[in-house]
Design a protein around this nucleic acid. Structure first.
Lengths: 146, 146
DNA sequence: TACTCAAGTTGTACTATACAACTAGAACGC
DNA sequence: GCGTTCTAGTTGTATAGTACAACTTGAGTA
């Protein structure tokens, strides 16, 4: 097996290990904001607001799933919907103040955990690892993860 | 924010995206074997059989969850239970022939998907990415979980 | 104007999960 | 040796997250 093939094997195995662990434990650390809600809020902050359809596309979720998530997040006051005056089918979603606060708080505590875990990594490796992950996740949807 | 800090942010975000997508897409690709079932079968193969309690401990799952998974896997003929003659509370779980075959088949097809996704990556990047993932997952169990 | 496309909601169903209450069997203490 | 406590597993119940299909509403277009 070539070095490339064996690297692909390793990537598969390690991504699987990570995926298997992640969700089970995410809820334990932040019961107030599930992993899914957290990522949706994060995207809203990053983008400065977007449509439900954009969230669905970005996370490869069904629009009905996003619709329910959005409903829940609105009910708990973390996001708000603003009707697009140009197109009345569209709701542009924005973080509320409360949403920004909770997101920041969870981000801080998650960041602490990640920092701890990545404590001994040289900056150069951190930067490269981050770039690889972005590239992997941005990959073609067809060959989608796993 | 330093380059290292912003890289940690990115790593956190991208790992999260991956974790959230993994299960859903695993189900799409292999309707016959969910990510959870896959990892349970993998563990059984690796260990050459074990108890339900061992699976629960290893994957940090509730024993009821494992019990139901095991029931389903037995019903579809992928594993079998053998009563421990020493201790009648214990069932030792083993892969059946069918279980071994499906496990091998899904492993092959997952490998193909990963290869496809990583097709355009230079070997150097594959090797480094693999090493980073191993290093990340090997980190201290405490900071393990997001 | 009528057809078609896009955004989102709702009904329904399923999987994975946890927690609690339970059964059955084993082991220990006195 | 007999009760108490521990261990393995099952079952009842509840919840989150998800998909798919059917629908509504609004926009764009032939």
């Amino acid at each position: 097996m070539s070095a490339a093939e064996s690297a692909v094997e390793t990537i598969q195995r390690e991504m699987t290990i990570f995926a298997r662990r992640a969700r089970a434990s995410a809820g334990r650390m932040h019961p107030e904001l599930s992993l899914v809600s957290y990522t949706l809020l994060g995207h809203l902050e990053e983008q400065g607001g977007c449509r439900a359809t954009d969230l669905a596309a970005h996370y490869a979720l069904d629009k009905s799933t996003v619709s329910r998530q959005v409903t829940a997040l609105e009910r708990t006051g973390l996001i708000e919907r603003r009707l697009d005056p140009e197109d009345h089918r569209v709701q542009v979603l924005h973080l509320t103040e409360a949403g920004q606060e909770i997101l920041a708080q969870v981000t801080r505590s998650r960041r602490t955990a990640f920092r701890e875990r990545l404590r001994d990594w040289p900056e150069e490796d951190l930067v490269r690892f981050a770039a690889y992950l972005e590239r992997y996740n941005a990959g073609p949807a067809g060959a989608d993860e796993q």
